[in-house]
Design a binder for these strands. Structure first.
Lengths: 198, 198
DNA sequence: GTATGTATACTAACCAGTGAATATACACAA
DNA sequence: TTGTGTATATTCACTGGTTAGTATACATAC
């Protein structure tokens, strides 16, 4: 691990991020990534042992910032948990309306690599989603929700569903619809702590 | 449109269906499809003007059977609408546990072609989902649901979300979780026909 | 003998990965 | 201070294979 090579590696990952996310990993060649990073393919292969390795690095670089953004949207919203979760969807809708938006990089990669179930990139994507699921689960548990894991998974289904649907229809309003559904599911559980039929 | 060429074209679409769905459309070459169909690439290009054209035909062929299956699962289930919709998710979970299952062909194609928004195949996928959404909307409308379109979209978000999540985690139980969420959303709307806060 | 349909053989481009050489930096000995 | 070795970092040029699409010719039917 030399000190000076870190920026180079970082630049390659940035270039890979821009190209893989916007064009798809099978559509983009290693040469294109190298060109975008301003160096030769051979140099790229000095820092990454294969294209698959580069793809994994591309997704690994998206993990942290992505989660941080969700937590920020949640925490900066006033009010209770239902509204805070709904705010995540509202913010997502806003970002999905940007012309360069192309859905969720993790989900798109898992769709592209559906024939390679154990691929490192898919594992990184799965771990990413699990982290978010677990954060939601903990949040709901603090609210005294009876089955916080189930509720967390339902919210994630709506979240990932909205990525898929909005990418297909190019209609970001589905994200707001998903947010309303999330609010309904959370409120339903919060309102019946003991007895049935509120 | 000659009479005798129909079976050939059909055989090509079948081969494309098997390969594109299982391996992904960018991974599979036209030569492979032709070989699987038992003919040469040149013959394939006699029936389809380009690979994009073939991809569109592959998805068009999935449209009808797919919708028919959903309607069958719905209609063969006893009880009310919430249980009938939940049954769709249960049946989907069962099919998702088969080893050859690779998610939703329409969504995976839209993920692979995310950089080509107007692609014919994406339009076919969008139309397919809209048909299902509209069928659900009509079904909910018959039940006197106040905003049947919104509810139909929420169910579709759960449906497509479960495709994406199960493909990523390879855990079909998410589909049953989605089914429960769908039931909750439908029952919530059916139970409050007039006033707020039950 | 003309429409339809199929096959052989080809083009031109692309693509993941590598061999061999080179440049740079820095440690340490003279 | 200068010379030398070594690990790091980068480039050029290449290979072997793949790919979408085509030019041309041949077959078959009616």
């Amino acid at each position: 691990m030399s000190r000076s090579s870190e920026p180079t590696r970082e630049r390659i990952v940035q270039a890979a991020n821009a190209l893989f996310y916007s064009e798809g990993i099978r559509r983009v060649s290693v040469d294109e990534v190298a060109a975008k990073a301003g160096l030769t393919k051979r140099t790229l292969y000095y820092h990454f042992k294969s294209k698959d390795d580069l793809v994994a690095a591309y997704l690994a670089a998206r993990d942290q910032p992505n989660l941080a953004l969700f937590r920020k949207w949640f925490s900066e919203t006033e009010g209770g948990v239902p509204g805070k979760v709904e705010a995540i969807f509202k913010n997502l809708a806003r970002s999905a309306r940007h012309p360069k938006w192309k859905g969720c990089g993790f989900l798109r990669t898992s769709a592209e690599l559906a024939n390679m179930p154990g691929h490192p990139a898919i594992r990184i994507g799965a771990a990413h989603k699990k982290k978010f699921e677990d954060w939601l689960r903990a949040t709901f548990a603090e609210q005294g929700v009876k089955d916080p894991l189930k509720l967390a998974r339902q919210i994630l289904l709506l979240l990932d569903g909205s990525f898929a649907v909005v990418l297909l229809h190019r209609d970001a309003s589905y994200m707001e619809t998903a947010g309303e559904a999330a609010r309904t599911l959370i409120e339903t559980v919060l309102r019946k702590p003991r007895h049935r039929r509120g």
